[in-house]
């Protein structure tokens, strides 16, 4: 590799990461409904307030009549009267009849500029009898507007604003896999040729990969706390992640236990090959056969293709390349340190 190319990929990686961090934190989230209060409705006239997250869904100077809220019970719509619109909330008056097809009500908010917002099982009516809604209570389906939101991230229930973690957590795991794969190849090279250079590469790769693995674990733990409510849960994907970090810590412990024994290269390579194959089994194969909370549980341990829309892709792909090149850069620095240390020791 010549000097100019070095500048291009290192500088390019930094520029991409700067773009990812700026764009990732400054891009607004599409609006979406979060809660309804009160969630238990009585029969008769009352008011309900629906609260939203993300960017404001109201338009400046829009009139109340442009916002329509309907509640859906079963396959029938219940009409409401809009009373107040705030940037992140809407209050409606609703007259709840004594008979409903279902006790659970889904809320739809039709807005002039942000499209239709939806909240499943928003409210419950304990006292309602089962039956069709009386015709005077039934709403007609309003016209849907086309959202005009500009560049914004998609709204996902439960994840909400934490969707930005996708730009940190996932690329960090990708980088770890990439660099551990490099270490695996280096260890194979060590076993084939017995050359010290391959061992130095493997050591540098594992060390860098372990750092990214720990970062991925930390960001994942934060995300789990936010979406699942616990810092750690028993889950095949998480078990695999923990085992990965422990395995590669074992690699470093093995190396330091060998001290300056000249067989350290070969033995570490043997352990690394074994560990990597176990890792692939663990992270790729086992989670597919057991239930998981982690995204992509239906046979694919990544994000579902429907969860990534174009705005997120425009930041996610640069994030993958940016974190990957940072990881590789760190690996080359560590490798250089290893080479210098080796040449000093073998003088």
């Amino acid at each position: 590799m010549n000097g100019a190319w070095n500048w291009i990929w290192k500088g390019g990686g930094i520029v991409l990461l700067a773009y990812v961090i700026l764009r990732g934190f400054s891009t607004p989230l599409q609006p979406g409904l979060v809660t309804a209060a009160p969630s238990q409705l009585k029969l008769g006239m009352q008011t309900v307030t629906l609260t939203a997250a993300g960017q404001p869904f109201g338009k400046e100077g829009a009139s109340l009549s442009e916002f329509t809220v309907v509640l859906r019970a079963g396959d029938q719509l219940l009409k409401t009267e809009t009373q107040e619109v705030q940037p992140h909330g809407i209050t409606v008056a609703v007259n709840v009849p004594g008979v409903l097809p279902s006790r659970a009500l889904d809320a739809f908010v039709f807005t002039p500029s942000a499209g239709t917002l939806f909240l499943g099982n928003a409210c419950f009516v304990e006292e309602a009898a089962k039956g069709d809604i009386p015709t005077s209570y039934v709403a007609n389906k309003p016209d849907e507007s086309t959202p005009q939101l500009g560049f914004s991230f998609p709204f996902q229930p439960n994840i909400i604003e934490s969707i930005r973690n996708l730009l940190w957590h996932v690329p960090m795991w990708f980088s770890m896999f990439f660099i551990m794969g490099l270490g695996f190849v280096a260890s194979l090279g060590q076993l084939r040729t017995g050359k010290v250079m391959w061992d130095l590469r493997a050591e540098a790769a594992v060390r860098t990969g372990l750092l990214f693995g720990l970062l991925g674990l930390a960001t994942g733990s934060l995300w789990a706390r936010w979406t699942w409510g616990a810092w750690w849960v028993s889950d095949p994907q998480l078990n695999g992640a923990l085992v990965t970090v422990l395995l590669y810590s074992g690699y470093l412990i093995l190396r330091s236990a060998m001290g300056d024994d000249d067989r350290v290269g070969r033995l570490a390579a043997v352990y690394n090959v074994f560990a990597f194959v176990m890792l692939v089994i663990l992270l790729m194969v086992l989670p597919r056969y057991t239930e998981s909370l982690h995204p992509g549980k239906d046979g694919n341990p990544g994000f579902n293709k429907y969860d990534l829309d174009n705005s997120l892709r425009a930041v996610f792909y640069p994030a993958v390349i940016g974190w990957g090149s940072l990881c590789y850069w760190m690996y080359t620095l560590r490798l250089r340190m290893n080479r210098i240390a080796y040449s000093l020791l073998s003088r």
């Binding site: 085992v243 395995l247 810590s249 074992g250 093995l254 236990a257 060998m258 074994f274 176990m278």
Partner: peptide, 28 residues
């Protein structure tokens, strides 16, 4: 068997090393 083969190559303290290397491999 594999872990103790690796650990036996280390001169000092291979007993504890076997446990350290073995436990993560045995978790699954």
């Amino acid at each position: 068997v594999f872990v103790s083969a690796v650990a036996s190559q280390v001169r000092a303290g291979s007993g504890a090393l076997g446990a350290v290397l073995g436990l993560p491999l045995l978790l699954p």
